[in-house]
Computed example of a mutant assay.
Amino acid sequence: MTKLTKNTLFKAYDSKPETPMDKTTRVVRQMVDEETEQRDARISRLRNARLEREANKPAGGKASEASKSRRSKAASTR
């Protein structure tokens, strides 16, 4: 009987070489992941800027501006 070791007990399977299609898939997935990270960073940066701007803005100013613009549009169409 042969002596059992790591090398003789388990068979070492050689991985098959990467095909051109596998390489393309890997590169495209990497590109898409990078674009997703950039988009998420941009969205969070813009969201934080908007929330900060809204927090610093007085609450009553927004409603009065909207009603003025509606009145002026209605008056100009007549």
Rank of each mutant, 00 (worst) to 15 (best):
R78M: 09
A41V: 09
E65W: 03
G60E: 12
V28D: 05
F10D: 02
P17D: 07
A12T: 11
E52S: 15
T24A: 14
A55Y: 02
E65M: 04
V32W: 02
R26I: 04
R29Q: 13
K62L: 02
M31W: 07
S15P: 02
V32S: 10
S67A: 12
K16W: 12
A49G: 00
S67D: 10
K62V: 08
K23D: 07
A75S: 11
K73V: 12
T19R: 04
N7P: 02
T5E: 04
A41F: 11
K16V: 04
E65K: 07
N48T: 14
S67V: 15
T19A: 05
R53A: 15
T19Q: 12
T8V: 04
T77L: 13
E37K: 14
E52H: 15
T8P: 01
A74F: 08
A66N: 13
K6M: 06
D14P: 01
T36E: 08
K16M: 06
A66V: 15
R78C: 03
R39H: 05
K3Y: 05
K3M: 08
Y13R: 09
D22P: 00
D22E: 15
K73N: 13
S67H: 00
T24N: 06
K11A: 05
E54M: 12
A55H: 04
T36V: 09
T8H: 01
